[in-house]
Computed example of a mutant assay.
Amino acid sequence: MCSSVNAELLVDKQTFTSQNFKTFNGNNIKEVNVGWESYGNLNPQKDNVILITHYFTGNSHAAGKYDVADASLGYWDAIIGPGKAIDTNRFFVISVDSLANLGVGDPHVITTGPASINPDTQKPYGLDFPVVTIRDFVNVQKLVLESLGIQKLYAVVGPSMGSMQAIDWAAAYPSKVERMMSVIGAGQSDPWTTALLEHWATPIKLDRNWNDGDYYAGSAPIDGLTASLMLITQNALSADFFNQLGKQTVPFQALESEPLHDIRKSHSIVNWLRSRAQARATTMDANHLLYLVRACQLFITGHQHDFSKAIASITAKTLFLPATQDQLLMPYHAKQTHQALIDSGKKSQIKMLEGPLGHLEGVTGISQHTDAIRAFLKQ
């Protein structure tokens, strides 16, 4: 749970275990272990619960610190906490690590995925791990909540891949979801998005160390993973941000000396991007990235072929917060889903996130809509 020390949330990571989890595609995972953390207190009626569903490279650490000495806070600490937009004096806020979480090497992440030990072989699953979907992430979260006696959500809120989970919650379990907030999100993966996501997977598959996913006893495909993370980072930012970075932080010049005289050398901006990706790759797993890509590619609200029918099943009040400069899940995704809800006679709102960070505006710039979030949660 969590406590408040010097106005900061201190949080403990909890572990949930489930046996014989049946996936959306009909496979069975003998044992699922996922981490979760919470902020605030569950009331006696257990009706003050807000579920935070995390983004692609994220995990359940949405707010606070694990220790007073931690250098960084949870990614949405700006809006989760005592007196904040998602007020932990009022709400019990909970978040769960996804299956196949990308940060499997992070000591604060607990997840089951391709890098986990297959109980049938006592070796890592590799590609024997079943394909998992956004619905599977939702159903694991549902099991965690039920283990706490929680049957209904005051709200489910998530950015990016988390927005997919949030809206799927609203479509799959409409009687359990009163409010849904989709940040930098989408209602389905369309042809453009599906093809774009494939570019994240390709470098890993081309790395000779990938070995068709069987690399756990040898050298991991770090080069491929690094290249994938470079793409993800650039896709998640805007052209304006990169160009400002080149001017202010990285001494970018088109005619830089090293790349001018040696084809093996890179421009300063590329070196910056690569070094950032290399640092992140140390706690991440290449196969896990492939599984998350596939979960996002397979996504459609309701996990059925009829998007309109799924939208019509939603009874929750909804709020969409797309980012104007988002080049990953471009604003048209949220606008189309919002309009589909309106056309279906549902109550929905949409407000734009402004700023130069592109897709990441939904993570680091979320506080600009503090008032809108607070008002939405009072409706």
Rank of each mutant, 00 (worst) to 15 (best):
V49S: 00
N139D: 15
F137P: 00
T57A: 09
G83Q: 08
Y125W: 07
K65Y: 11
S95G: 02
G105L: 03
Y39F: 15
N48Q: 06
L42W: 06
Y66R: 14
P82T: 09
N41L: 08
N118A: 05
H54P: 10
Y66Q: 11
G113I: 11
V93C: 03
I117D: 02
D106H: 11
G58E: 06
V144S: 08
F91S: 01
Y55G: 09
N41P: 06
F91H: 05
N139W: 13
K65E: 09
K123Y: 01
H54G: 05
T53R: 01
H54M: 08
Y39Q: 11
F137D: 04
N41M: 05
N33F: 08
G105H: 02
G58F: 01
I117G: 07
N89G: 14
Q122R: 10
G81Y: 01
I94N: 00
T133S: 12
A100K: 11
G81R: 04
T57N: 03
I134Y: 05
G83R: 12
S98R: 11
D106I: 07
D87M: 04
V144R: 13
T53V: 02
A62D: 05
V104W: 02
V68L: 15
A115D: 06
N139Y: 15
D128M: 09
D128L: 14
E37K: 08
T112V: 10
V34R: 07
S38K: 11
L143E: 15
V96G: 03
L73I: 10
L73A: 12
I50N: 00
S38G: 10
R90N: 14
I50T: 00
N48V: 03
Y125E: 06
G58W: 02
H54I: 11
S60G: 02
K46G: 01
I110E: 09
V144P: 10
A69F: 09
V93W: 05
D128P: 01
D77H: 04
A69M: 14
W76V: 00
V96Y: 00
V34Q: 08
D136H: 06
I52H: 04
L127Q: 07
Y125L: 11
N101V: 12
F129M: 05
D106M: 00
R135K: 14
P114L: 12
L51S: 05
V32H: 03
L99M: 09
L102A: 08
A78P: 08
G74R: 00
G103T: 00
E37W: 03
V109K: 09
I110R: 03
I52Y: 02
N89T: 13
K46Q: 05
I94T: 08
D87K: 08
T133Q: 12
G149Y: 03
N33P: 04
V109I: 11
Q45S: 07
S147E: 14
G58C: 06
D120Y: 09
N41E: 12
L51F: 13
P107C: 05
K84W: 14
D67I: 03
P114R: 07
K46C: 02
V104P: 05
I52S: 01
N139F: 04
E37D: 05
N43V: 15
